[in-house]
Design a protein around this nucleic acid. Structure first.
Lengths: 148, 148
DNA sequence: ACCCCAGCTTACCTTGACGTAAAGGGAAGC
DNA sequence: GCTTCCCTTTACGTCAAGGTAAGCTGGGGT
């Protein structure tokens, strides 16, 4: 169940900017395939200020740094953070050399998230109990009625 | 944590229709208080076809049946069903005398819901693990850096 | 007479994370 | 030259369950 590296055998014949893939640059389509996203999604992240790829001939060109950032975005999303939180986190990722502020941020919001998830966990568990009881009662009812 | 009967000591001096409360009718405000909802929410349910209260002098008047239905709506919501599903359920509640179709419906959708919740339960658990690890690592990092 | 409260309707706003459509450009392959 | 892909931008649509506001009505109390 790891979302770490989902290479989807992307064999795009990427053209345009000066060179071929493997020379360090990446187009939006490739990147989308790599991470299992749509180009629209990646542009959306850029709109929201989570990514700022370079341009060559008016097309987005993604560096290694960009790819790392997108990986962090996916990881954050998987852990249930909002894009806004992830943006804050990435801001620190830019500016914070020794990562200390970034870790503090992570601690704060991570603990919040954990509390929320624990609460959600309890809710789901309780709902599940109630629902199982309800369905069991319905089964009982149907059994009684269909076989008198 | 019971949501069964949340009477909030509603002491509205309800007027207008021919009689006083206790004579069998209920205004939207009272009902809202009784169930811990807003009038807007109750009107919204009516819009969606979940309730069809009578009118007296152009005002909504809720019968005992309506109150029962609203109770079912709240229960359904608490169990995580959508208003659309609840509407279907209530349709059967109207037409199905021996409740057999209603119970079948409940079985079908209840089982679906249970499966979804179990999946969600696992997701939350896994995310929680990952997040705890991450936060622990961040704690470790902060500790190392702030006390050299 | 006046104000306040409760109710009514219609209609747009909210949140999050995109989807979808419209309209166009440029390069590669046949 | 034509088609086909991929890329670009802007802008509106989606889903759920209501919130919020505007503007009106009508009864009760002072």
């Amino acid at each position: 169940m790891g979302l770490g590296s989902n290479q989807r055998t992307s064999q795009r014949t990427s053209q345009r900017p000066g060179g071929t893939p493997g020379n360090g640059w990446t187009g939006i389509g490739e990147l989308a395939d790599e991470f299992g996203l749509t180009p629209r999604t990646i542009r959306f992240y850029e709109d929201k200020g989570l990514l700022t790829p370079a341009r060559e001939n008016n097309q987005r060109v993604y560096s290694h740094r960009d790819r790392v950032r997108l990986g962090l975005i996916c990881r954050g999303k998987r852990l249930g953070f909002t894009l806004t939180e992830i943006k804050e986190f990435l801001k620190l990722y830019e500016a914070d050399d020794n990562r200390i502020e970034q870790m503090r941020f992570l601690l704060h919001h991570g603990r919040e998230r954990i509390a929320a998830l624990e609460s959600q966990w309890r809710d789901v568990e309780e709902t599940l109990h109630d629902l199982r009881d309800l369905v069991a009662a319905a089964e009982e009812y149907v059994r009684r009625v269909t076989r008198p």
